[in-house]
């Protein structure tokens, strides 16, 4: 297996426009779901079989009393050693495809025979969801159908600020390292989240849990 592909998500450049959230639905033919305003910009509230990319909003006050607002464009991390794949494989053969060239982790229709809660519990980032009607599990595919046709993932393509970058893993790891070093000058807490373990690598400028409780392992 080659080193595969990776996506960098630099939260310090994200404006939470949610272009990625919509682009994901557009490319993957996922419907807009019925939501309600419950006192936050974040909507839908969580992932579902119809929502594989979700911008999470987190706000609070800094020590100086001024507000902060963090945006976390959440998605499957496409782990190097995906625990969900092990779980699914334990129940059914070919429930997960681990693509050789990209490293993308893709669920198949056979996941409908697998106990969903076990799969969800095995994911440290709380990504997998289930179609309640068909029982098939769903999540981000890294847009493997686009990548195989020389296109970058829909979410990355939609990003107007360059907060998301797609490329060969080695190249992305170098970018991550360089960017974190740059950010550390102004944000001492700047870090990449679990870069050795995942293909979708988030860069944050504050503690990951301030962005989202499942941001990091």
């Amino acid at each position: 297996m080659s080193n595969g592909k990776s996506i960098l998500i630099d939260t310090s450049l994200c404006t939470a426009c949610r272009g990625c959230q919509v682009a994901c639905k557009q490319w993957n033919n996922l419907p807009g779901t019925k939501t309600k305003q419950i006192g936050t910009y974040q909507n839908p509230q969580d992932f579902s079989a119809s929502t594989w990319k979700l911008v999470r909003f987190a706000e609070g006050k800094n020590g100086n009393g001024k507000p902060y607002w963090y945006f976390f464009s959440d998605m499957c991390r496409h782990c190097m050693e995906p625990p969900c794949a092990d779980t699914i494989q334990g129940f059914v053969k070919d429930g997960v495809i681990r693509d050789e060239t990209t490293g993308a982790v893709v669920y198949t229709g056979k996941t409908k025979t697998v106990p969903f809660e076990k799969v969800r519990a095995s994911c440290p980032y709380d990504i997998p969801r289930q179609n309640l009607k068909t029982k098939v599990m769903a999540k981000c595919t890294m847009c493997i159908d686009r990548i195989k046709n020389d296109r970058i993932p829909a979410c990355v393509q939609s990003c107007p600020t360059g907060a998301m970058v797609f490329g060969d893993r080695q190249e992305i790891l170098e970018k991550v390292e360089k960017r974190v070093a740059e950010l550390k000058k102004n944000y001492p807490k700047a870090m990449a989240i679990n870069p050795d373990d995942v293909r979708v690598i988030f860069i944050v400028t504050d503690e990951p849990e301030k962005y989202w409780k499942h941001a990091a392992v």
Partner: peptide
């Protein structure tokens, strides 16, 4: 629907 889903009310 994708936009109304994101800002419904």
């Amino acid at each position: 629907s994708w936009l109304t889903e994101a800002q419904p009310q």
